[in-house]
């Protein structure tokens, strides 16, 4: 049904990444996003991607098949992006090869490749994070670690939990409207109408449920005190702190090197 893989959800497991606390993983996600962000040169971007993939396979125990299933769509989009950009951007640098009367140059094609791969990498990092971090652990750690008020963190977690239900709901609404003989309209105006007709029933239902949910939470004393106990929390330990510090250092060093022009992250134009 709708929640079998069509939506990126947490998958329970026992890998080192699963056992790592959410804050460290969050730091990791941000660190690798920043590393990927700073690079417009092909070999560096490849390096970042390779490291991310290795982490996924070794520490996340991802299976190749699952990772492909989760990212193939993006892979194709990125390849398309690379091809188109190579054609359309102004050429510079030595010619790599010629195709369809177009000269592909190291700098331009390299740039296109790096940007395309960057998109894929950032997506990949998000996937690794979501698949290995339970929403509750995330909510708990941003409450304890980042001092986000627990009412907000928990409400967000609850809303996330509702996603699979909402997706089923959306499928049902679409089916119901199909039974009514409703087609999908085109154009911006049509798209707006489609959206409204999808969102209103979806929200009516979700908000009706939210009313019950809020009553259920408050009748169990949710929000009665400024703090609450969290049982079985995956807290940041020495290992997590060390990893976070190392990642931070890596990002800082990376950007300092870039800033001092010691390493080049852009092709010189």
């Amino acid at each position: 049904m709708a929640h079998d893989g069509s939506f990126l959800q947490y998958r329970s497991g026992n890998s080192p990444l699963h056992k790592l606390d959410p804050l460290t993983k969050l730091a990791g996600m941000l660190a690798f996003s920043f590393l990927a962000f700073g690079t417009y040169i092909a070999w560096m971007q490849s390096l970042v991607t390779l490291v991310v993939l290795l982490i996924a396979f070794i520490f996340g125990r991802f299976r190749v098949r699952d990772l492909i299933a989760a990212t193939w769509f993006f892979g194709i989009a990125c390849v398309g992006f690379i091809v188109i950009q190579s054609f359309t951007l102004p050429s510079s640098g030595p010619v790599l090869f010629r195709l369809f009367g177009h000269s592909f140059t190291t700098n331009t094609t390299g740039y296109a490749y790096a940007v395309g791969l960057r998109i894929y990498t950032i997506y990949l990092v998000s996937i690794i994070f979501i698949r290995t971090t339970s929403p509750r652990d995330l909510a708990v750690s941003i409450t304890e670690g980042l001092k986000v008020p627990y009412r907000i963190a928990y409400s967000f977690f609850v809303a996330m939990r509702m996603i699979p239900l909402m997706q089923e709901e959306m499928a049902v609404i679409r089916a119901a409207q199909q039974v009514r003989g409703m087609g999908r309209r085109k154009g911006i105006r049509g798209q707006l109408q489609n959206l409204r007709q999808l969102m209103l029933p979806l929200l009516v239902r979700s908000m009706r449920e939210a009313g019950t949910l809020v009553h259920s939470m408050e009748s169990r004393a949710f929000g009665a005190f400024p703090t609450r106990t969290f049982t079985d929390v995956n807290r940041m330990k020495t290992k997590g702190k060390a990893i976070t510090l190392a990642l931070l250092a890596l990002v800082v060093v990376w950007y300092v090197l870039v800033g001092l022009n010691i390493i080049h992250t852009q092709y010189i134009q």
Binding site: Y154, V158, A210, T212, L213, H215, S216, M217
Partner: peptide, 11 residues
């Protein structure tokens, strides 16, 4: 309450 899906908070 009535709807179990609506009132369960956790996973």
């Amino acid at each position: 309450f009535q709807d179990p899906d609506a009132q369960i908070v956790n996973v």
